[in-house]
Amino acid sequence: MALVAFAVFPAYWMLTTALDADAATRGSRLVPTSLTGENFARVFTDGDFGRFILNSVVVATATVAISAVVSLLAAVAVARFRFRFRTAILVMILIVQMVPLEALVIPLFLQARTLQMLNSLLGLVIVYLAFSLPFAIWTLRGFVAAVPQEIEEAAYMDGASWGRMFRSVLLPLVAPGLVATSIFAFITAWNEFIFALTFMQDSELYTVSVGLRTFFGQNTNDWGAIMAASSIITVPVVVFFVLIQRRMTSGLASGAVKG
């Protein structure tokens, strides 16, 4: 119980400070004296967070969708088919995951500049895919490999094509892994700061993380508005995780293999 309280308290403090009418003088009070929504209204009117949220939604949605499709097909390829350099590809996937994020900022910046993808949401999506795909492919490979090939062969014997087998048999069984990798891709795209700050020069293309940094610099002493902006950034991640968690549970149940 103490660990739960320790983990939840920062979120409680952030949200109550955002709703506190006297946030500037709150001090160590655990309960706000009065509640107000002015801090949230100010974030959208003065901070232009509506645009930042829209940009982040576009980037995160594209990252999750493309990552899910590409990683699933790649995982099926490396788990089911035997081809040349298969082991080398798996090793390369692991090596990419070991490279520190900071070491890739300058190389990717130069490459994006050469390809004229700076100050572009598409360029940001491609960068996030580069970080999401190795983890997703390696994770989904384990889910695909765990599915007995006899199940696929039984579907073929019943007259199903590869596409029908993939859609009706394999996909439901690997759905929990697909959901887990989608959560990782969404969080990566939503919370990432370094590349979003480096790649974007136009304030209209800022994502929420860069927008929060800009808003904090303009309102250093207004803790109510800063906490409101932080809450707005945090809520979509929590909501997305709660919604996906239900699908993950149902996927685990429907994907159970009975012997």
Rank of each mutant, 00 (worst) to 15 (best):
A145M: 06
N191V: 08
A136V: 02
P172V: 13
S254Y: 00
D48E: 14
L15T: 12
A155R: 04
L118E: 06
T214V: 09
F216R: 12
T63N: 07
V91S: 12
W190T: 02
S203G: 01
F195D: 00
A146V: 06
L101M: 11
F44T: 02
F83A: 12
I187G: 00
Q111A: 14
A65F: 10
F135R: 05
F44Q: 06
P176D: 07
I187D: 05
F195R: 03
L90D: 14
G159N: 04
A136R: 02
S34T: 14
F9D: 06
V144L: 06
F81I: 02
A75F: 02
F49L: 10
V147C: 13
F44E: 07
S71Q: 12
V125S: 02
V179D: 10
W13H: 11
F44I: 03
T45K: 10
V144P: 02
V144R: 03
S71K: 01
I93A: 12
L94C: 07
V125N: 01
M117Q: 13
A155T: 09
L170A: 08
F85S: 12
V99W: 07
V144Q: 09
A62I: 08
A23G: 07
F195G: 03
Y12S: 05
V169S: 06
A253L: 15
V59H: 03
S231V: 02
Q245S: 12
L173A: 15
L90C: 04
T25A: 13
D222K: 03
G142M: 01
V58K: 01
P32W: 11
T249W: 03
N119C: 09
E150G: 08
S209D: 08
E150T: 09
N55S: 10
